[in-house]
């Protein structure tokens, strides 16, 4: 019965709530982080978190190999993760939507070119593309966004293409054309508004994907170079100390899981809420 308090929006409230906290932490990192995330301290190397034996309240989540405060590093790391996740999602969503709308609405040759290109790109391993691009351009937040953004557009292109194609065949599109509605009018008035709810769901879930990818790239050393505080970097450092100092990998891993979980929660909640039949009602 407690769930009834949140009603149908339970997942959205929970997911968005956690995400909001993380975003606030990212924005106000300088005020929240107890230490400078790059401040090394050889005397305070590999201190366990406060709740473990030998831990102290000075470093709530312990310290890493260089004596840097893990909590501070995680808080600063959320900035990169969220920035890269959201920005690369926005980039691939925009690219894919434009391509999908074009291919789906125009059909014919445009469709062939765009969709075959999407197929070809899908057949190319993401990680290989990422290695090539970061090797050529160097690891920076902007490059990460570019790499992830470009490697993710096909999902949106296919989705939007399929929806556009089926919507284009619906009578109301023909009706609008018969009243003299231009292609632009039809796309913006009749097609896009019906694609957006589906896109929102996919895009939300994609953010989680992107955050994982960013972590994976950093973990492989293809992201921002150390000592930059990113979750992937922290995880990679933790790997070397998995037995001596497991908290390094655990805390960063948990941070990633928490974000991905809440994003998925939000995405699933949105999918349920944006069902056109349920959304439009309210008699």
């Amino acid at each position: 019965m407690r769930r009834r308090l949140f009603g149908k929006r339970f997942k959205i409230v929970l997911g968005a709530g956690i995400l909001l906290c993380i975003c606030l932490a990212a924005i106000f990192a300088p005020y929240l982080a107890p230490y400078d995330p790059y401040q090394q301290s050889l005397v305070r190397r590999l201190k366990p978190p406060a709740f473990m034996d030998g831990g102290s309240l000075r470093n709530l989540l312990g310290t890493d190999n260089y004596g840097r405060d893990l909590l501070s590093r995680l808080i600063y790391g959320s900035r990169i993760s969220i920035l890269v996740g959201v920005a690369s999602m926005a980039l691939s969503c925009t690219l894919g939507t434009v391509a999908g709308l074009f291919a789906g609405f125009k059909g014919g040759r445009v469709e062939q070119v765009v969709m075959r290109f999407a197929d070809a790109h899908s057949a190319f391993p993401d990680i290989l593309l990422a290695i090539i691009m970061t090797a050529a351009l160097g690891g920076s937040a902007l490059n990460l966004i570019l790499v992830l953004g470009i490697s993710g557009w096909m999902v949106y292109a296919r989705l939007v293409f399929g929806l556009t194609r089926s919507l284009r065949e619906r009578s109301f599109v023909e009706a609008a054309a018969s009243y003299g509605g231009s292609d632009r009018y039809i796309v913006f008035r009749h097609i896009l508004p019906q694609v957006v709810p589906v896109l929102t769901v996919v895009a939300t879930l994609q953010v989680a994907q992107m955050i994982l990818q960013e972590a994976a790239l950093s973990f492989l050393g293809l992201g921002l170079p150390p000592p930059a505080a990113t979750w992937g970097n922290i995880l990679a450092e933790g790997r070397d100390r998995l037995f001596g100092a497991p908290w390094i990998a655990h805390t960063s891993g948990l941070a990633i899981i928490l974000v991905v979980f809440s994003v998925n929660m939000l995405g699933n909640g949105l999918r349920e809420a944006l069902d056109p039949k349920a959304a439009g009602a309210g008699r």
Binding site: S171, F172, E174, S178, R189, H190, P193, Q194, P276, G280
Partner: peptide, 17 residues
């Protein structure tokens, strides 16, 4: 504008939103 079209399928004739 002087000729209008009416459709068969009342479920797809309108933008549901």
């Amino acid at each position: 504008r002087r000729i209008q079209l009416m459709f068969q399928d009342p479920s797809s004739a309108f933008n549901p939103r």
